[in-house]
């Protein structure tokens, strides 16, 4: 988002809070670019699928967002944090469907990049399983440590910077950095044991 964007977001949030139904759409338009860049960044790490797919992801996210209600948005960073949560939902939904489809014997194309950039074999095949394991682990992390859950949402699902995450969650950047490091270790440990258990069955 360019320099002018922030003010526009502020105004639109104001309008959205005061009940202007079109504000949400316009707000999304403004943040769209930013969000799209994030999704594009994710995509660029991976290459392969057409740009269209990034757009599809954003649209999905938007649908979730529109359902979430605009009242909670206090700032651009806060908006991004909400988008991050939406992104999480979108991804987990897909993983569930994907998992179901796989059991049903579905064929799907595998791109070269997808194979090359497959997560390390510790995940023991199948990203959808990894996502579902992450979701399960994240849910149990959140129970005792809600703050860490939010940090993971912003950093991992939303691809937000430490600065944005700190602003959105009202924490100091140092706290975010610290929390993110420890949460990653905690989650990885938990996911690893989940995947190992499911392998053994």
């Amino acid at each position: 988002m360019d320099d002018g964007g922030e003010a526009a977001v502020g105004r639109l949030m104001e309008a959205s809070r005061s009940g202007d139904p079109a504000a949400l759409d316009r707000l999304f338009e403004v943040v769209y670019g930013d969000l799209r860049a994030r999704a594009h960044a994710q995509r660029r790490r991976w290459h392969g699928q057409e740009t269209l797919n990034t757009t599809a992801l954003i649209h999905e996210t938007y649908i979730k967002l529109a359902g979430a209600g605009a009242d909670d948005w206090e700032s651009r960073a806060h908006f991004l944090a909400i988008a991050s949560r939406a992104m999480r939902q979108v991804l987990v939904d897909y993983a569930r469907r994907q998992g179901a489809a796989k059991r049903g014997g579905e064929w799907r194309p595998v791109s070269l990049d997808e194979i090359l950039l497959d997560p390390e074999r510790s995940v023991a095949g199948g990203r959808s399983e990894a996502v579902l394991a992450l979701e399960a682990s994240l849910a149990s992390l959140e129970e005792a440590n809600p703050r860490h859950g939010r940090i993971v949402e912003c950093r991992f699902f939303g691809g937000m910077t430490i600065g944005d995450t700190a602003e959105a969650l009202g924490l100091s950047p140092a706290t975010v950095k610290r929390g993110w490091a420890v949460a990653q270790a905690w989650l990885y440990r938990d996911i690893r044991s989940r995947l190992r258990n499911s392998e053994g069955q």
Partner: peptide
């Protein structure tokens, strides 16, 4: 766990989002 965790999350993130988007389409 911290030794491998960042690599795991990086790897997961690289394939996750586009995969989901792809499946949507």
């Amino acid at each position: 766990a911290a030794e491998e965790a960042p690599a795991f999350f990086e790897a997961l993130a690289t394939s996750l989002v586009p995969q989901a988007a792809h499946a949507a389409l």
